[in-house]
């Protein structure tokens, strides 16, 4: 009878836990936003696979000297183009360098270029996108027209031009990738802000007298960044591919540096004969990109509060 007595009290039913009648189901009393996002991310099998791949990549890059079995630069002209064996797991290249060690060391370039270029791109893109989205009008027009120019330029051609001017090396690669990636980030953030800005909760904050910075930091950013976050994860993967492509085309890092694009490039002459030469670095690239794509997908789903 307690159930009945309770429901007869005025207003008691409306104050009943949502779990009993409402939309929300077993909700723990105390959950943080991050805790919930982590939970949702971890519940997604592909996202976890992606995360493992990405962590493996980072670990490999950090511990490359410990994992590598040989010096990636050491040439052994007496043992060139050797097939995979107990000593050289992935075989050796035309200069007798250990392929396994080069693949391992190649992760360092991938990580550094991928993260640094996207970090830079975000720095430019997020600030400009936020300015354009929040202030609109002339600021928006000017920023977006500039973004259009970079957006319209094919990444590889633009990067080649910059590298030809600056010379080859890791820095020019990072810079050129950043310069041609920020436009997408800023566009995404801008459009996301534009839609969030119209939400009633932003109006409500204004009506309460909240300052502009408070509105941006507390209300607009947390809700618009989600759309950008997953894209950023994708972009790291894309940047790594772009970097490898530049090296493959011979405008990336110097050819002696252990780098996946370089390795594939030098394997060109032996395609169909010594396929292990291009296979291992290619697999490394594919796994890396898949890792970031899965993480990006997982983030998108985990960050959406409405999907629950």
């Amino acid at each position: 009878m307690t159930e009945l007595a309770k429901s007869q009290g005025p207003g008691a039913a409306t104050a009943e836990p949502a779990a009993a009648t409402g939309t929300a189901e077993p909700a723990p009393a105390r959950i943080t936003q991050w805790g919930e996002i982590r939970h949702r991310f971890m519940a997604n099998r592909l996202a976890v696979v992606g995360l493992v791949l990405v962590l493996l990549l980072f670990l490999t890059a950090a511990l490359a000297p410990l994992i590598a079995t040989h010096d990636p630069y050491a040439q052994d002209l007496g043992n060139t183009l050797a097939s995979p064996s107990g000593d050289h797991w992935f075989g050796t290249d035309a200069l007798g360098r250990d392929q396994f060690s080069r693949v391992i060391y190649g992760s360092r370039i991938a990580v550094v270029v991928g993260l640094a270029s996207i970090f830079l791109a975000c720095l430019i893109g997020l600030v400009l996108g936020a300015l354009a989205g929040y202030f609109g009008k002339t600021v928006d027009t000017v920023i977006m027209r500039i973004a259009d120019i970079f957006f319209a330029f094919p990444l590889l051609i633009g990067a080649i031009v910059i590298i030809l001017v600056m010379g080859r090396g890791v820095m020019p690669v990072i810079l050129s990738l950043a310069i041609f990636s920020w436009a997408t980030v800023s566009r995404l953030l801008r459009s996301s802000i534009l839609s969030v800005r119209e939400m009633d909760y932003v109006t409500a904050a204004k009506a309460l007298g909240a300052s502009t910075s408070r509105i941006i930091i507390r209300h607009i950013m947390p809700n618009s960044i989600a759309a950008v976050m997953s894209f950023i994860a994708f972009s790291v993967g894309t940047a790594i591919v772009a970097e490898a492509s530049l090296s493959y085309l011979g405008v990336g890092v110097s050819p002696e540096v252990p780098e996946w694009g370089n390795m594939i490039s030098s394997a060109r002459d032996f395609m169909g004969v010594k396929d292990f030469l291009w296979m291992y670095p290619s697999v490394a690239i594919v796994l890396t990109v898949l890792g970031f794509v899965f993480v990006g997908d997982g983030l998108r789903d985990a960050l959406d509060p409405k999907l629950r």
Binding site: T203, R218, K306
Partner: peptide, 28 residues
């Protein structure tokens, strides 16, 4: 103060109920 039409867009989905109702106190 104001009460809005759409209960689905008038509350910031990334804030807890406590933060939403407590925000006026942070502003004032």
């Amino acid at each position: 103060q104001m009460v809005f039409q759409d209960p689905y867009t008038s509350l910031n989905p990334r804030m807890t109920v406590g933060d939403i109702i407590g925000e006026p106190f942070e502003i004032h």
